[in-house]
Lab assay of single mutants.
Amino acid sequence: MIFPGATVRVTNVDDTYYRFEGLVQRVSDGKAAVLFENGNWDKLVTFRLSELEAVK
C-alpha cells in the first residue's frame, strides 16, 4: 500500500522517470503525486498507482 510520505520507485519502463525514486505527496483516484528532488530542482509528477512500487 502506498501512502503520503512513502518513498516510491517508478516501475513503468516506458516512462521518462523509470527507476527514479521520490516522495509521495498525495494519493487519490488511483493516482499518486510524487515529488522528485535533485540538487537545485524539484518536480511533482502524477503516476497511476500501478506504475509505482514502495521502496523498502
Rank of each mutant, 00 (worst) to 15 (best):
N38V: 13
T7L: 14
A32T: 01
V10F: 01
G30Y: 05
S28D: 10
D15H: 15
K43Y: 10
P4G: 04
P4V: 13
K31P: 00
S28H: 13
T46H: 09
V34M: 01
A32R: 01
A6E: 07
S28Y: 15
D42L: 15
R26Q: 12
F36E: 00
D15V: 07
E53P: 01
V13H: 08
I2K: 02
T16R: 14
V24L: 03
V10N: 01
V8S: 00
Q25I: 15
V34G: 00
F3I: 12
V27T: 04
G39N: 09
V8G: 00
E37I: 14
F47L: 06
F3C: 11
N40P: 12
Y18T: 02
R26T: 14
N40F: 10
E21N: 05
F47E: 00
A33H: 11
G5L: 04
D29K: 08
Y18A: 04
E21P: 04
L49K: 03
F20T: 05
A54F: 14
G30Q: 05
P4K: 08
T11Q: 05
E51R: 02
N40T: 12
E37S: 15
A6Q: 12
S50F: 09
D29E: 10
V24R: 00
A33Y: 15
V55N: 03
T16S: 11
E51S: 07
K31H: 13
L35G: 03
I2N: 01
F3Q: 10
Q25W: 12
N12P: 04
F20D: 03
L35N: 04
L35P: 00
L49R: 02
S28E: 13
N12H: 05
Y18C: 03
Y18H: 05
F20E: 06
P4D: 04
Y17A: 03
G22N: 00
T7M: 13
F36H: 00
W41F: 11
S50A: 09
K43L: 14
V45F: 06
G5M: 04
D14V: 08
G30I: 03
L23H: 07
V8R: 00
F47G: 00
V24A: 03
G22R: 01
L49A: 03
N38Y: 14
N38C: 15
E37W: 13
G22F: 03
V45E: 06
E37V: 15
K43F: 12
N38D: 10
Q25V: 15
